[in-house]
Structure formats: structure tokens, C-alpha cells
Simulated assay, not measured.
Amino acid sequence: MASMIDGIDQRTQLAGQNRLELLLFKLGGTQRYGINVFKVREAIACPPLTQMPHSHPVVRGAAHIRDRTISIFDLSQGIGKRPVVNPREHFVIITEYNRNVQGFLVSEVDRIVNISWKDILPPPTASGSNHYMTAVTKIDNELIQIIDVEKVMSEVLGVDDTVSADLVTRFAEANAEYKHHILVADDSSVARNQIRRTMEQIGVSCTIVNDGKQALDQLKEWAAEGIDVSKHIAMLISDIEMPEMDGYTLTTAIRQDPNLKHIRILLHTSMSGTFNNALVEKVGADKFIAKFAPDDLAITVQGLLEEWRDKAEQTS
């Protein structure tokens, strides 16, 4: 299975072209699920697991893989389905999310498919608010669900979105006079709430949308109303992986639009890898930061806000 992921570095050229590759897998039934290959280190047969006392039920144990100890999550149980009975009969997808490496138990690893983000759609509205999907797509006339892994991990591990008290005091006071407003685009409900709560603590309000297309539509709507968008919002915080339009493509579209090109853009993503920094420069974003560390997010945003204020004062 590990060979399926070989050559992942050669796949980085897909980013910025509104394309991605999905690793398809199953969780004990016929339904197939997908995960972005950029998040995946390897897929292996489940190794021996060491039980961890007092751990969350979804954490089935720890495995020693490539000289490091990795927590193994029962992904089926994590999304509300039946727990795995015998982990050793399953496979583990080793992933890197939000600055951490972890493994997810799956019953079957299928194949890798190349697809356009335009074909990745938001979950159906009939799914309600308690589902674990960030998106869906169709492959060979079959509906593929893309799991909101950030939601699963936040429920298992918990999330601390508290900004350090000294930063809150310093940044909130600095921002009080300006009443900054920003646009946020992210397809994960967990990530949207994390960003919103972080911004509230430093005195910044947000307009929040669910994907890159919605973000671009909102920006163009403001511009069509005669609003100077680069003054109306201080910046855009955008995820990279999003249905219909990814963050790289969104950034490129903004930089090519004369009415929008001066907007400051922070790409904020659970994707890891040095290729991100190179692509940030290529598409013209101002900064890249990995999810999710509230202090790092607050400090990075504050730096961009101060640049925005300096430029506003120079042009006033």
C-alpha cells in the first residue's frame, strides 16, 4: 500500500491548477471515502497497537512507525459508525494534519484518482449540521464522501482556541480604533469557528464563507457595489483545500482582478509540506501558516493588519 503514495512530491504541480488527487478508501461497507493525497504520508497494513490508558475510545492505540510513536484513530467510530473489531485486519492511512502525524484505521485502501476541485461540491443541504463531510464528489457514477478530519480530531483531542492573555491585551488595544473586518473562507465548520473565535479575541470581526468560490463571489459583489474592497476588508484568510475552488486558485483569481488585486491574503491550512511556501509565492499570497495554533494565527494576522494600516495612512 505504501507504494500507492510514492512520488507524492511530483504531484505538487497539481496545486495551483484547481486540481487534486484523492486517495479512496472504505470503512467497512460499500461507501467510498476520499482524502487529499497531500495529507497522506503512506498507507500500510495495521501494525501491532499498544493500548493507551484513559485515551478517547476512538484512539485504538499507538503504533511505532518509522522511529516515531503515532496515535491510531478508528475513523469509522470517529464519524459515528461501528468501531473496528479487529484492527490488525485493517489498514492504516498515516496522515499529517494540523502540525501532527496520526494514523486512521480503514477497512480497505482503494486507489488514487485525479480530479478537479470544480467537481468537489459542498455536502447536500439534506445532510444537516451533524455530518462529518466537508465535501462530496462523483467518481464512476458513485458518490464519494470527503470526511471532515479536522472535526473528528477536534472531538477526540479537543481544541484550544484561546489566544495568550498578553497578546489579547496588546492586539485588542491596537485594533480598537480601526474596527478591522476580514473575510474568511474555509470548508470546515471547526476551522471556521476556530478562526472566528481567535479573531474576536483580538478585536477583529469577520465575514465567513464556506469555500473559495463563495469568497470570490462575495469580493466581486462588493466591488460591483462600488466598494473599495481593499479598504472594506483588511485581509482574506483562506483555507487551501475547498470545494469548487481551492485557495491557490482563489488567490490567483484575486491577483488577476484589478478591483481586488491589492487585498492581503493569508493561506491557513492543515496541509503540510515545504511546497506550500513555494506555491504561496507563485500565486501571490502574502503569508502561509499551518493550522491550528491560535497565538501563531493572531500574531500573523496582526502583522498583516499593521501593514494594512501603514499603507492606509500613507495613501490617506
Rank of each mutant, 00 (worst) to 15 (best):
M1W: 11
A2R: 13
I5Y: 05
I5R: 09
G7S: 09
Q13C: 11
Q13K: 13
G29L: 07
N36S: 00
E42F: 06
I44G: 05
I44R: 04
S55K: 09
H56L: 07
H64R: 10
I65F: 03
R66L: 03
R66V: 02
R66S: 08
H90K: 09
R99D: 15
Q102R: 11
Q102K: 08
W117V: 04
T125E: 05
G128P: 01
M133Q: 00
T134V: 09
T137Y: 05
N141V: 11
N141M: 14
Q145I: 08
V149E: 04
V152G: 03
M153D: 04
V163A: 06
S164T: 03
A165E: 15
L167N: 08
E173C: 07
N175I: 03
D186F: 09
R192P: 15
Q194P: 11
I195S: 09
I208V: 15
N210R: 13
A215W: 06
L216S: 01
L219K: 02
L219W: 06
K220N: 11
K220V: 08
W222I: 10
V229Y: 08
S230P: 09
P243L: 03
M245T: 05
G247L: 05
T249W: 13
L250G: 06
L266S: 07
L267E: 04
L267G: 03
L267W: 07
G273Q: 00
V280N: 04
G284Y: 09
K287R: 14
A290S: 15
K291F: 00
L297S: 06
T300M: 04
R309H: 01
T315W: 11
